[in-house]
Measured scan of single mutants.
Amino acid sequence: KEMRNAYWEIALLPNLNNQQKRAFIRSLYDDPSQSANLLAEAKKLNDAQA
């Protein structure tokens, strides 16, 4: 469930391009235990690109 939530949050971040989203989501599938960390990194990048 945590992975699914992280997937959708990443997919809906407005300032990431599709390539960036795909990279984060690929990492999510590679290591679901890192969901919270990956989401935090994606949000950080999203904010930096705002």
Rank of each mutant, 00 (worst) to 15 (best):
N15V: 02
S35L: 13
A23K: 12
A6E: 05
P32M: 06
P32V: 05
Q19P: 07
F24S: 03
N15P: 00
F24M: 07
L13Y: 05
K43R: 08
L28Y: 03
N37A: 06
P14V: 04
F24V: 05
L13T: 01
S27E: 10
N17F: 03
A6L: 12
N17Y: 03
R22W: 14
Y29R: 14
P14L: 04
R26K: 15
N17L: 04
N37M: 12
L39Q: 03
N17D: 10
W8K: 15
M3K: 07
L28C: 03
S35Q: 10
M3Y: 08
L13Q: 03
M3P: 11
N5S: 15
R4K: 13
S33E: 09
R26F: 11
N5A: 12
L16D: 00
L16Q: 00
P14H: 05
S33K: 09
L16A: 00
A6W: 14
Q19W: 11
I10K: 00
A40T: 07
R4W: 15
L28E: 00
D47I: 09
L38Q: 03
A40S: 10
L16N: 00
I25E: 06
P32H: 04
A42G: 01
Q20I: 04
W8R: 14
Q49A: 13
S27W: 13
K1E: 15
Q19D: 13
L45I: 09
E2N: 12
N15C: 06
R4E: 15
A36T: 08
P14D: 04
K21N: 00
L39H: 02
N46I: 01
S27Q: 09
A6C: 04
Q49D: 03
R22M: 14
Y29F: 15
A11N: 15
Q49H: 04
I25L: 14
K43D: 02
E2C: 13
Q19Y: 09
E2F: 01
N17E: 05
I25D: 02
K43H: 12
N17P: 02
S33P: 04
Q19V: 11
R26H: 12
K21M: 02
S33D: 11
K43L: 07
I10Y: 00
A36H: 10
A48V: 10
D31I: 05
P14Y: 03
P32E: 05
P14N: 06
R26N: 15
Y29D: 04
E41D: 12
A42W: 00
L38A: 04
S33N: 08
N15I: 01
D31R: 05
Q34S: 08
K21R: 05
N18W: 12
A40M: 14
N15T: 03
D31G: 03
M3I: 15
A36I: 08
K43T: 05
Y29Q: 14
A6K: 09
S35E: 13
N37F: 05
L45P: 00
D30S: 09
S33H: 09
E41K: 09
A48Y: 10
E2K: 11
I25A: 04
N37S: 09
A40K: 12
D31A: 07
I10R: 00
